[in-house]
């Protein structure tokens, strides 16, 4: 691995290659984070842009003076306002529940694709992942047609006589979970498929030869061997779900709180940039552990 050993200097030619992408990420990726942190510490104001800078134009002496009046208001707001706390908890519950359901749906699906005839596997996995590339917004929108009171599912159930009145499915947290499961299923499917597909079939045969029932083979051989796929898939679904905005906004009710949506409202509706920035910092802090876990899993995977 090139990762190990001593880090070397770049040659001049290499610097020419790396200069443009490096400058780009410094300007459009690292600087934004610095600014989010900075503005989360400033005070909201009725100006344009709507915040009072804390550090701008101050000399070093001014810096220390300003440091003493650093605005932690936005964070204090985060801690005191139950809206934020509720958004966090509800984001975690919704994302966690959706991740679990995603796993339950994706596992048999991935298993079936991985055990299909070898020739068919790339085609099947290709078609299973293809919807991911179609518009996210449109895929979420498609569920409105299905879930609404006067939508297709309620209409079908009433026509069949299963229910008398429409089930309230649209504009609920349940609808948000369905939307997340549907949108992020490919993220769960791919690592699961990769983990199951590369398993050595002779291990299963050996277990069967020793008298294990098919279910025992699954429980003691297939499932443990796909553990890494499960972890990777769960993180890949959970991480983007927590900060999701479009799904709770379109499928959720007005009482469906999620951090991404709260941040959006702080920014667009309340024009409170410091609060939105503080929410962003807190969201990242919340995601730091799962993101690091994922990076570690990837590194281990790469080392194999």
């Amino acid at each position: 691995m090139p990762e190990g050993g001593k880090r070397r200097r770049l040659t001049r030619g290499e610097m020419l290659v790396i200069a443009a992408p490096y400058a780009w990420i410094a300007l459009f990726f690292l600087a934004p984070f610095a600014l989010i942190v900075k503005i989360s510490l400033s005070h909201p104001a009725q100006t344009r842009p709507p915040y009072e800078p804390v550090f701008d134009g101050a000399g070093l002496a001014g810096f220390f003076e300003k440091l003493s009046q650093l605005g932690l208001d936005a964070y204090r707001g985060l801690a005191e306002d139950t809206l934020y706390l509720d958004s966090y908890l509800s984001s975690l519950t919704i994302a966690g529940g959706a991740t679990l359901i995603c796993l339950l749906i994706a596992y048999p699906f991935a298993l079936a694709i991985a055990r299909a005839p070898r020739r068919l596997r790339p085609v099947l996995i290709g078609f299973a992942v293809a919807p991911f590339w179609t518009s996210f917004l449109i895929r979420v929108y498609a569920w409105i047609t299905l879930l609404k009171d006067e939508g297709i599912i309620n209409h079908a159930l009433m026509a069949l006589g299963v229910i008398d009145a429409p089930l309230p499915m649209f504009a609920t947290s349940g609808a948000v979970v369905v939307g997340i499961v549907y949108s992020y299923l490919p993220f769960m499917l791919l690592p699961l498929y990769a983990a199951i597909e590369r398993q050595d079939a002779s291990l299963r045969e050996a277990a069967a030869d020793l008298g294990a029932t098919p279910f025992q083979v699954f429980l003691h051989v297939t499932l443990p061997l796909s553990r890494r796929g499960i972890v990777a898939g769960a993180l890949l679904v959970f991480i983007p779900s927590v900060g999701e905005f479009v799904i709770p906004d379109l499928l959720g009710g007005s009482d469906t709180l999620m951090i991404g949506r709260t941040l959006w409202n702080d920014f667009f509706a309340n024009r409170d940039w410091p609060a939105a920035s503080a929410a962003a910092v807190a969201l990242l802090a919340l995601l730091l552990v799962p993101i690091l876990l994922y990076e570690r899993a990837q590194l281990r995977e790469g080392a194999r």
């Binding site: 990762e3 880090r7 200097r9 990420i25 690292l30 900060g243 905005f245 991404g260 920014f267 939105a276």
Partner: peptide
Amino acid sequence: GFRSRTLFAGSIYAPLVMPEVVLGLG
């Protein structure tokens, strides 16, 4: 393994797992 490779690679790949609301705001 050049110097600052970790920072470079990390910043390149981070948007893959970063919430869009955070990227947009930044």
